[in-house]
């Protein structure tokens, strides 16, 4: 369908906004062959490498997308291959908040509280249409749904779909890895 055809022939959606394609394709062969873990680097790079390869998500599901998140952690897709399979129940020990599902107005202060409880550096993944901009629940004069997770927490990765497949979540985590490795400073 799309014109951005990759080597493996997987289709990409032709997006209106081309800025949404990642800087470096984390799914390319290059990224998989050379995980760049043993590369000697300055301390900052080393720490970033550690962070990128140890993204512990918060045990935290909001709605139906959480089922796909569980599937991504289960045997068939196994997020633990990338070191992201340690779901920590306590926000104090988690690095990534996977916002999986519809965020109701009632839930949003709780999410903000959980986010504030997480220690820096921390990241957030918006999984599914509802967390990107309200999704199917967004219509004029609606009063129940928070229209997008980025109204509550700063989101790093957006994964569309209703719900996204587990592969999409893994792709999101791999892209987050690239972002962490790039060494940008994050605050809050």
């Amino acid at each position: 369908m799309g014109k951005v055809d990759r080597k493996d022939g997987v289709v990409r959606l032709p997006l209106v906004n081309p800025a949404n394609t990642p800087v470096r394709d984390p799914l390319g062969d290059e990224a998989m062959v050379d995980p760049a873990v043993v590369r000697l680097a300055v301390l900052d790079d080393l720490l970033n490498l550690g962070r990128a390869n140890s993204l512990w998500p918060l045990t935290f599901g909001l709605a139906c997308c959480a089922i796909e998140m569980m599937a991504a952690g289960a045997s068939k897709y196994d997020m633990d291959r990338f070191g992201a399979g340690v779901f920590r129940p306590s926000a104090r020990q988690a690095d990534v908040m996977i916002l999986a599902g519809t965020i109701s107005k009632k839930m949003s202060p709780v999410i903000r509280q959980l986010w504030d409880q997480m220690p820096s550096p921390k990241w957030a993944i918006a999984m599914g249409g509802c967390t990107i901009d309200g999704g199917p629940f967004k219509y004029p004069n609606q009063y129940a749904i928070e229209e997008g997770a980025d109204k509550i927490v700063p989101v790093d990765i957006y994964i569309p779909g209703c719900p996204p497949r587990p592969e999409a979540l893994i792709a999101g985590i791999l892209q987050l890895k690239e972002k962490v490795k790039a060494g940008r400073r994050f605050e809050g």
Binding site: G50, R51, N53, R81, D95, P119
Partner: peptide, 27 residues
Amino acid sequence: RRMGPTEVGPYGLLQTLADMLKLISKQ
């Protein structure tokens, strides 16, 4: 019936090293 850590280092052996590095640098 999963694989466990495979991508970080050979057989994922450096996985816990990455975890340690991260935990050291956490707030």
